[in-house]
Amino acid sequence: MWTWQHVLTTIFGGIIFPLVIGLVWGKLADEYKSFGGVLAGFFIVGTIWLLNHGIGLMYEPQMSGGLPGPWSDMALAAFWGLFVADLMEGKKIDWEPVLSGLLGGVLGGLLLFAMV
């Protein structure tokens, strides 16, 4: 069951992930090029994953029960936060990457569905 505590922790999880990516990832990539992405993978995504899904800031009650799922990953917050920040800045929606991302998700989902 959802309580106000879960609401608070889930929203905070949604804030912290895109915020840290937006603040740090670009700087790491500027300074260290491809190696910056390696550092970002471990120290941004890895560390925030421990908080959001490892410890469980983001509450996912649908994961208990006989048919656990569907899983809503913290990746949604990463995509949406960065996307919205650019939209607020006045950038336009470019449908080429949007379509790539959506179709990639559909194909990835099919592959995961096909396993096991």
């Binding site: 799922g69 569907p70 899983w71 809503s72 990953d73 990746a75 949604l76 990463a78 995509f79 960065l82 996307f83 650019d86 939209l87 950038k91 336009k92 929606i93 470019d94 080429e96 990457p97 949007v98 790539s100 991302g101 959506l102 990639g104 998700g105 559909v106 990835g108 989902g109 099919l110 592959l111 995961l112 569905f113 096909a114 396993m115 096991v116």
Partner: peptide, 27 residues
């Protein structure tokens, strides 16, 4: 590989990641 251009709003690969699990679950 994801064709982000300078003028458009940034589309992160996270979109694919999120949708994959939502549709296909985890293994």
């Amino acid at each position: 590989s994801i064709p982000n251009k300078g003028g458009g709003a940034w589309v992160d690969m996270a979109l694919s990641v999120w949708l994959s699990a939502l549709l296909g679950g985890t293994v």
